[in-house]
Design a protein around this nucleic acid. Structure first.
Lengths: 266, 266
DNA sequence: CGTGGACTCTCCCCCTGGGAGAGGGTCCAG
DNA sequence: CTGGACCCTCTCCCAGGGGGAGAGTCCACG
């Protein structure tokens, strides 16, 4: 009583037979009984809710390994936290999707506005910085925390707008080095905040106006300018948030300087 | 002049070298020049915007084949339509994600309310129907169109609430047969609307209250009931929208009868 | 003019989460 | 007892990459 063949269980849970077998193999959802001789899988009615939870989590693109972790967590509170993590991940993904849509619309607009590029010999400078190696898609989250810590440590002693320095790999969704800073006369050393020296460099600088969604378009235009002026790019890109969220809540008024280290090609 | 190695192009477009090679292989983004002897790929500055468009589209999970189709479309209007299609797909996906989140929350709630199940011998009946073989994830869209056509053809002559009959495969994201109907005395035959006979069946019936997000939980509970009452399920599931969007705009007041064809297990 | 290091090439295997089908064994109702 | 539905395992395929091996190329510096 209450024992189901894989086909019956499939009909009741709306998971395909194939998928159920895969979940068995992955030790995600083990049949209540497996006939030793025939290999037939038999499921119990009490496994239906579990199967449904798996189904929903998979619909949210939670990897099987994480589904397993969630299912194996007995404490409902901890389990809820794990689920919440994934919901947060979905939120972040949604933000990225929105940004990509904005960027795409801008890219498909027929006439890109020409950009002003300035070549600037940037001397080395010492600033209060927070740096880390992060994954590309975690940059936004990391940035928020790091900048909050910087503001707390430096605050009004800042002698200019904040900025950052980002490895190229970060833009390719890989891991890379990221650094955010606030310029100040005497950089403190508290928590993750420490003094750091931005090396001197020759920068091709342009200004991106507006929110950061779609900033890639400006990057592309800057890259084109660099190449057409017989130069090549090197090193991590630098951004300076001349006017940013700390200055105004109107994203349309934001001004971001993008500085790409360049060197002249012979 | 303006010719870039794959590494330079990678830095300028934020696409990894690997990915660029893959795109070449897929004839998505061919280098301007390929050295016949060394195989080295060289890109032109003018390819940066194209690379960026590809990058954004991929961020939106547009398959490479569709990206190719979009890029090969010369007419900007048609191209915009193709892109709009994918944005629509993203919207639909978002709806499904939302539904899964609601369902998941309900599943993780500790105490599932017990459900009332009624065993009903449903005689055969002839109704005005629209049917098709559709993909599981297109059901919602298909349903909207089909029901609109039914309303237009039958309208006030309906003798009861609308309903549907759905293959199991539809719930597994595969293709399956779907049928929606409005009961009426003399079913017309116009457009996709035609008379159809719902075969007699013994149904295990329960009522789901509220919006359809999370209806899976009710399905699970019904399935458990069926098995615990020594029966098995068969054939496509039937839904009757006793109170639905055509009756009230308040989803919390919706009532959906779920009827699962069952047969007694010896 | 050499040479070393950075860059690039191709080839192959790995990952996830499935789908498709072959070839053969099992269950059960008529 | 037999046919048809069901179930088993097995191998191969897909997208869209990641990772690394082993070898060839480019170029600036000494």
């Amino acid at each position: 009583m209450g024992v189901l063949t894989i086909g019956e269980f499939s009909r009741l849970t709306h998971l395909s037979v194939r998928t159920l077998r895969r979940y068995h193999e992955a030790a995600l959802l083990e049949p209540a009984v497996v006939d030793e001789i025939t290999g037939y899988r038999y499921y119990g009615v009490d496994q239906i809710p579990t199967a449904q939870v798996i189904h929903r989590l998979r619909e949210l693109d939670v990897p099987l390994s994480d589904v397993q972790r969630i299912l194996r967590t007995p404490d409902p509170g901890v389990r809820a936290a794990l689920v919440a993590d994934h919901l947060q991940r979905l939120e972040d993904e949604l933000d990225r999707t929105r940004a990509a849509v904005v960027s795409l619309r801008r890219l498909l607009r027929p006439d890109p506005a020409p950009i002003d590029v300035e070549l600037r010999a940037q001397p080395a400078r010492t600033v209060a910085a927070v740096e880390a190696v992060v994954r590309g898609r975690d940059v936004a989250t990391w940035y928020a925390g790091a900048m909050a810590e910087l503001e707390a440590a430096v605050g009004a002693a800042a002698t200019g707008p904040p900025g950052g320095c980002y490895d190229n790999a970060l833009f390719e969704q890989e891991r890379g080095h990221a650094l955010v800073y606030l310029p100040t006369a005497a950089p403190p050393r508290t928590g993750r905040v420490h003094p750091a020296t931005l090396p001197a460099a020759e920068l091709a600088v342009t200004t991106h106006v507006g929110e950061h969604d779609g900033i890639e378009v400006t990057y592309g235009a800057l890259g084109t300018w660099v190449v057409e002026n017989a130069m090549s790019v090197a090193g991590p890109v630098r951004e300076v948030y001349v006017v940013g969220p700390r200055d105004t809540s109107d994203p349309a008024a934001w001004r971001t300087e993008i500085g790409w280290p360049v060197f002249r090609v012979t």
